[in-house]
């Protein structure tokens, strides 16, 4: 029996669609619908059409503070993971001469990715705390006379924990795109008189753009959609958008939470779409 090619393709893709429709499309629509419903105050939803939830969210001064905080953390984490991830990938691809060693070091960087994020986050507590390793070391050296308090339960700790978790999302795609750069192109440029800076500026950076874009999507999406790192590492000092609607759910305010979720998801999708405009992701990753 010869089947039409499109039908065969659809048979292969069907299982994926059968997961994505009920567990991505439908839940997102449910959240969208819940955002225009009323609540009875006990966790029940009253089907109506109201924009009060959105008005409530958008007119609250707290919302803007939350978004400002979340965007600030996203920007800081993005910059640090980008710089660190780029340098690490660059070192592995262009400076480690033994290919086997480069792969070994690359694996060394990826192993923690496969372990628990929460555990990796709390592992900073014995280091950064008031009586932690860093403070006791600095005190012993006589560099400071009182423990530094900004290290833990602060914005600093939040950024450290995120950079610790997410740099790998930059390293892997940038490493991939750099590894694909033809070394002869670099040699030709050098032979033609390009300086090291020129090679970096005119060859390496432009050709790793797709890796940077892919990594940025992961980092931006994860920081914007996350709440537990901010909650734990800031010690309650900072809040995040997702953290706020997690609290709304705690008090059964589903419609308010849903409205806030819709706004956040829209912003997130917009950021991702902007990044995707700079590069054809599908062509880059399927090749």
């Amino acid at each position: 029996m010869r089947l039409n090619k499109s039908v065969v393709s659809w048979l292969y893709i069907l299982p994926l669609v059968l997961v994505l429709v009920p567990f991505f499309v439908a839940p997102m629509l449910v959240v969208l619908v819940a955002s225009v419903f009323n609540t009875d105050g006990f966790g029940g939803l009253i089907p109506t059409f109201t924009l009060d939830n959105y008005i409530g969210v958008l007119t609250s001064g707290l919302t803007f503070k939350l978004y400002f905080e979340t965007i600030r953390f996203t920007a800081l984490v993005w910059v640090f993971t980008l710089i660190l991830g780029f340098l690490v990938a660059y070192f592995l691809v262009f400076h480690v001469r033994n290919q086997l060693l480069a792969i070994g070091l690359f694996l060394l960087c990826t192993v923690p990715f496969w372990t628990s994020n929460i555990i990796r986050m709390i592992s900073w507590i014995p280091l950064l705390g008031k009586e932690g390793l860093i403070n006791s070391a600095l005190l012993k050296l006589g560099l400071i006379h009182e423990p530094l308090t900004f290290l833990l339960y602060s914005s600093f700790a939040v950024v450290v924990a995120y950079v610790h978790q997410l740099t790998i999302f930059m390293v892997v795609p940038i490493f991939n795109s750099m590894a694909r750069i033809d070394k002869r192109v670099v040699e030709a440029a050098v032979d033609a008189g390009a300086s090291r800076l020129d090679v970096m500026r005119l060859i390496v950076i432009p050709l790793s753009k797709s890796g940077v874009a892919l990594g940025s999507i992961f980092v931006v999406a994860i920081v914007m959609g996350d709440f537990f790192v901010t909650k734990v590492m800031s010690g309650g000092g900072s809040a995040s958008v997702v953290g706020a609607f997690y609290e709304d759910i705690g008090v059964l305010q589903y419609p308010t939470a849903a409205a806030s979720a819709v706004i956040l998801t829209a912003m997130l999708m917009l950021s991702v779409a902007l990044i995707l405009r700079t590069v054809d992701i599908r062509r880059e990753i399927t090749q």
């Binding site: 991505f24 629509l29 997702v242 759910i249 997130l268």
Partner: peptide, 22 residues
């Protein structure tokens, strides 16, 4: 399908979880 896949990957996990729960 590809766009749905990328969307599912970047959607905030807690939002999706709440959606499934509701």
């Amino acid at each position: 399908v590809f766009a749905l896949m990328i969307g599912s990957l970047v959607a905030p996990g807690l939002v999706l979880g709440i959606g499934v729960g509701l």
